[in-house]
Write a protein that binds this DNA or RNA. Structure first.
Length: 437
RNA sequence: GGAGCCGUAGCCAAGCGGUAAGGCAUAGGUCUGCAACACCUUGAUCGCCGGUUCAAAUCCGGCCGGCUCCUCCA
């Protein structure tokens, strides 16, 4: 199995840290606003990835966090005169709702920053005592020059970064790219620490949570492409400083979603939420739109793309209904199988685009086999189809066909054969109402 | 200024050294009591120019055109 590792910029053979086990962590959202479709892209992709690893027999532990402390949350809390927790709770619910509406399996761990404050303080203390962090003013900073190879993930040399041109230089820092570990604050939620009253910076939480939950190095660390620098770079730096190892064996990043060719942003006003999309499109359609192209490439969402996915979704649904009916009417038994072609595509850095092409090919063959009454072929293809849709996380209401259903079906056929079309249409309507055809 | 990505038929998209998968749309046809579904047929030499090679969409160089990151960001 090959996975593209952002750390080396290469396609690498996947080797788990412990055979048969897999620890994976994906950066979750900061819960300071309504989540949009872009937040769902990594969620849907990594959900598919985890489903696949489990199918392959790995015992997967999957964690994804909520950043429930940050300046914007504090700001919102002050403005609305509610607590930070109330702000975070509201948007956590919103996000979790979106996840389940897109059929994402709940993660095994959903850590929050506020639940790890003690561990974060201990961790920062460790960095201070080992001279990787320093206090200046009221804040604590990480000293990027205290480790070798800062910039190894993003391939950045700090002297080339466009620092002063973009934001004001903080004179408290030894190096402009030193980052805040602990921020002293005079407003909003704060905690007491040996180095002062304040709140943790953004980059420390993930490192601390990962070490606590997984007890050290993980296999895969994922997130959006925008997190490569500085967030993931800084996670790597802290782990290096504290424990002298790499945080993760494989770093995976998904491309961003664009809307009608434009970057989604508040200023353009083209941010679209899952709820809004669900007014017009089904969860399957949205997942298909996301999985139709490669996860690392940017994904452009447009009406054309969604309509096309909708057509694919209907094709799948139609094939499932017909096959399910055929199997039940003929009292056949479906067996779960593994499929080599499918695995070959998934093993190639999760080429879901090829998987969907293969799905469509399978469906075409199902339709041909149904016409030819080729029972063996139908059973085999049906198994492949259901395997793929399960791992892509698509859901279809596969009806249990009852004896009554079968009876109506037989009556329909009998009426058609005797050219009694009035009654045939009645039975057809009943079958449609029962969601069978 | 630095790091990196992308440019394949009307649209979406795979392929990443051996001679262009697939889907949507279009057009024509088949099946069919009527519908629906389905099936068959239907199109590109891969942004431009040069180089390497027996062989390039695939490697190298230049150019043009989009884009991302370097500040919070999935």
């Amino acid at each position: 199995m090959k996975i593209y590792n952002t750390y080396t910029n290469k396609l690498e053979t996947f080797i788990p840290n412990n055979e048969g086990k897999l620890n994976i962590y994906v950066c979750g959202p900061t819960v300071n606003k309504k989540t949009h479709i872009g937040h769902m892209y990594p969620a849907v992709f990594f959900d598919t990835l985890v489903r696949y690893f489990r199918y392959k027999g790995y015992q997967v532990t999957y964690a994804s966090n909520f950043t429930d402390v940050d300046d914007k949350i504090i700001q919102t809390a002050i403005e609305q005169n509610i607590t930070e927790k109330e702000v975070a709770d509201k948007y956590e619910k919103y996000y979790l709702n979106d996840l389940s509406s897109l059929n994402c399996i709940p993660v095994d761990y959903r850590p929050r920053v506020t639940e790890y404050i003690d561990e974060i303080i201990d961790f920062i203390n460790l960095l201070i005592t080992t001279n990787h962090a320093y206090k200046n003013g009221d804040d604590v900073y990480f000293d990027i020059n205290s480790i070798d190879n800062y910039g190894s993930l993003s391939n950045q040399k700090t002297e080339n970064l466009d620092y002063g041109n973009r934001i004001e230089i903080d004179t408290n820092k030894k190096n402009p790219y030193d980052f805040v570990l602990w921020k002293s604050t005079d407003q909003g939620i704060k905690w007491q620490a040996p180095f002062g009253e304040g709140r943790p910076g953004w980059h420390t939480e993930c490192v601390v949570m990962i070490n606590k939950i997984f007890n050290g190095k993980i296999d895969i660390h994922g997130g959006g492409i925008d997190l490569v620098f500085p967030h993931h770079e800084n996670e790597i730096a802290q782990q290096q400083a504290a424990y002298n190892n790499n945080l993760a064996s494989y770093w995976m990043h998904n491309g961003h979603i664009k809307l009608d060719g434009e970057k989604m942003s508040k200023s353009i006003g083209n941010v679209i939420t899952v709820k809004e999309l669900l007014n017009t499109y089904t969860p399957n359609t949205i997942r298909l739109s996301m999985l139709k192209n490669h996860y690392r490439a940017p994904l452009n969402i447009s009406a054309d793309v969604l309509e096309e996915s909708k057509t694919i979704d209907n094709k799948i649904l139609s094939a499932i209904k017909q096959t399910n009916l055929y199997i039940n009417v003929n009292n056949l038994t479906v067996i779960n199988i593994k499929d080599k072609t499918f695995e070959e595509y998934m093993d190639d850095d999760f080429n879901t685009s090829l998987v969907i092409a293969y799905l469509l090919d399978t469906i075409k063959n199902i339709n041909i086999s149904l016409r030819n009454n080729n029972t063996n072929e139908i059973l085999k293809l049906y198994s492949i189809m259901t395997l793929i849709i399960n791992i892509l996380g698509l859901t279809y209401d596969i009806k249990q066909i009852t004896n009554e259903d079968k009876e109506i079906y037989n009556l329909w056929n009998t009426c058609k054969a005797s050219k009694d079309y009035t009654n045939a249409d009645i039975y057809r309507k009943q079958l449609e109402e029962r969601n069978i055809i």
